[in-house]
Amino acid sequence: MTADKERIILFYERRGAAVWLAHLDMMRLFERSLARADWPLSWTEDAFNPRPELVFALPVGLGIETRRDPLEVTLALDGQALDPDRALLCLNHSFPAGVRVVDWKEGKAGSQSLMARVTAARYRLEAEGIGAAFRQTFAGGPVEVVRQQKKKRTVVDLAPRILSFEEDGEDRVSFTAGAGSSGHLRLDLLLDALVLHGGLNRNAAQGARLVRLFVFLDGEPA
């Protein structure tokens, strides 16, 4: 890659202790890891608080593992060439425990933000009895849960946000759900729905393993 500014999309996984970081923590983690790996980052023009140009396709919720979540990095190459394999080797070496870039591809120049291109995401949930709970909850008809924000209380119907699901034994379900700027499925609301409507044990819900396997960009698995 040679040009003045170039975009690269990184696909990252997070496991172990890193799963328990909030989205802002992950942004900070990537900024520092990229700095340690000496990546030639492009910085925003803000006079008071310039930041490296990083865009996550989706915010990553606390307690959710990822396997290949996209993250777009804008580089300021200034005519220099970047060897992606070597740069990635350095980057993977500089992460704290639990985070790793598993793949990459060249980003698209200009216009559309990575976030706007997200349409859906594929997940896997593991918890005792989750198969039956999912089946019962998404048997047909609306699935309503209350979303309590600080001063706002909304009722959300999750049914249209589950696009497909498969059971894999009693304690594991894989499913595709809406994600991104509209129709996004929040996993915390999903767990509430499974407890409320599907008879999932509350403790099992609290201890569930949540994995985002991949994201759909422009309707295709990325």
Binding site: W20, G63, A97
Partner: peptide, 19 residues
């Protein structure tokens, strides 16, 4: 699962995880 449940029930679970 019990550890995940413990962390899910508190603010800023990364205070306790190390890593």
């Amino acid at each position: 699962p019990s550890y995940r449940a413990l962390l899910r029930g508190v603010r800023k679970p990364a205070r306790y995880t190390g890593g």
